[in-house]
Nucleic acid binder design. Structure first.
Lengths: 338, 338
DNA sequence: ATGCGAGGTCGAATCGCTTCGACCTCTGGT
DNA sequence: ACCAGAGGTCGAAGCGATTCGACCTCGCAT
């Protein structure tokens, strides 16, 4: 194993000088820096993670708590994870994976063992049991998602209420007056997951403001459920011309259902989704993008900021960006009445 | 921070005794053990990960290299990850996430910095660039998947060739003589991913043995591609009565396509898939299960074994288990000719 | 010429744990 | 009665980095 003293010897300096070159915490002459870096490369030196953690009280590791339960759309989840890992590496940190089911014990363990410098918790629920614990930890935490009471916490997420409002606003601007919302699986609402209820709330408030009617249907992530939801919506609201879909898994099924029920998109019915932009782009779908990359990266940056400066903005709500594509168009009177 | 000396003081023993209680590397009287454990619980002690790693040369961390590229079915991937994390925790280890794109540098870094005790590499390709590097590492590695030359490596995976054979065998046993294979996306074959080509190989060899004809179609993970593949198969082989599907993403589309083309399952065409069992069970589909849980757990166990004993079986090929469900049935002459 | 501060480097202490060797106390065999 | 060895515990020496204080050398202001 090649250690810092080997590098020091090779570069003809002391070990502490090598350390200072690496950390930049004291001025070192350019010439010395050059030699040290050359030796580091020559020997392929990497500091021993444990030793470094012990001496510096920093592990350069971020813990990421990922949810592994029903109703979370796995590809989206993976996008978050990827974004976090990628960004973490950019700032010289590694990512430790914790699963939900280790729950509070996991958080305690990470804190007590100094395994990680900071913790990122994904998929926070409105009334999350971990929130009190998170508040009490000395380890900096960042939550992806907003609990009901975010007091004293650092949270980041898409502004889902605004996203819901944006969808309704977009459709209303196009002249639509009767809309449907195909939402998340019932289990997700039941669990009190913030983003689902917030979208519904945003949709409802925008609907009230704009004087449009919206019918909502929760929807399991299956083709059958999507068809059923569409059929119900068309039945209870025959004059429906706008559709908001907030459920990644069933978007294609929804479009298929409309096709099979002889509703052309966007001629008869306009569709706007809240989903990852890649998915929407592939289907040429109007959407509010779910900026997983952005959120993940922000979460890491917030964590790093908490580590260095201590205080950071408590709430980061990313403004929704609506991209109009081929699935939304003006409501036309003749069609409304057909 | 509560350290080992605090526990020692509290339990009225020396620090080394506490350490030995925890590691079990020396006999300690039951009474002392009891007191020490009581103190540990009372103080909420967890050993400092860095200090432990430094002193013991074991970080109790497993590095997991996950692929993040096109064509990997994300839910399946997540199953592996979950299985690995779960099992790792059971044996008192944590999991560090490395992404593919850090590539060889990531592996080198982990080795040099002693971040992890062992490395698990997922989604190994037939001609994987990382294989030579893996061979040269002193850190124990376990590969999920088999490269073309597995000499000197520890690999674990489903026996995909046998899985392919099992599918064909099952259909042949039922009297089918003309079959189609709906395979992975072309990119996956092009990349030389082992499991895809091995299934194809297994299918081909079994077909030869059993004297049946098989047509193969690669298939992108979209509904359209699935429909196209089915149409092509039905066209080039009109008397086709059996179908093997090795592509999680399009299974439902394949079934939908058969339905739309007026082929009843299993009356007209029998379908067997290679996919996670939960998916198959939901669709009441005959399948060879993709035992992600089992593979992940084995990978961890192999890694641990390499850490303690040093030598372990090089190749672990899990025998395929075929579960017959509602989608496969006897070929009936009348139907063959209809 | 002198003193002082900034820049640059080094040595030694320290972080919290594991582990090695030593020591003490029994117990059982001779 | 004595010794060997097993069982049980302790003290001290690392593990490989970081960091603090000290020291030396300049150049510059006085």
């Amino acid at each position: 194993m090649v250690g810092i003293v080997d590098v020091a010897r090779h570069a003809k300096v002391s070990a502490s000088t090598v350390s200072y070159v690496l950390s930049g915490k004291r001025p070192i002459s350019p010439e010395t820096q050059r030699r040290v870096h050359a030796s580091i490369r020559a020997l392929g030196y990497h500091p021993h993670a444990g030793a470094r953690a012990l001496a510096s009280k920093r592990s350069n590791v971020l813990a990421l708590v990922v949810p592994l339960r029903t109703g979370v759309h796995v590809p989206v989840l993976m996008q978050f994870v990827t974004a976090v890992v990628t960004r973490a590496r950019e700032v010289d940190h590694d990512v430790l994976l914790l699963t939900q089911d280790e729950g509070e014990r996991g958080l305690r363990r990470v804190e007590a063992s100094a395994l990680a410098d900071a913790i990122i918790v994904m998929d926070v629920e409105l009334d999350d049991v971990r929130v009190p614990l998170v508040r009490s930890l000395r380890t900096p935490c960042v939550l992806i998602g907003f609990p009901a009471d975010a007091e004293g916490l650092t949270c980041v997420d898409l502004d889902f209420a605004a996203a819901g409002r944006a969808c309704v606003g977009h459709l209303a601007d196009l002249g639509h007056r009767r809309m449907g919302l195909v939402g998340s699986p019932p289990a997700v609402y039941a669990r009190g997951t913030g983003f689902a209820t917030r979208v519904a709330g945003g949709v409802a408030s925008a609907a009230a403001e704009r004087g449009v009617l919206v019918e909502t249907r929760a929807c399991e992530p299956t083709r059958e459920a999507a068809f059923a939801a569409i059929d119900e919506l068309l039945q209870t609201m025959p004059e429906l011309t706008g559709l908001v879909v907030h459920n990644e898994s069933v978007i294609e099924s929804v479009l298929a259902a409309l096709r099979e029920r002889d509703r052309r998109v966007p001629d008869d019915i306009s569709v706007v989704a809240i989903c990852p932009d890649e998915l929407a782009a592939r289907l040429d779908l109007s959407c509010v993008a779910l900026p997983a990359d952005d959120v993940g990266r922000r979460a890491v940056d917030l964590a790093m900021a908490k580590l260095s400066q201590g205080v950071v903005p408590a709430a980061t709500q990313l403004a929704p960006r609506l991209t109009a594509r081929a699935t939304s168009a003006c409501a036309v009177e003749g069609r409304l009445l057909r």
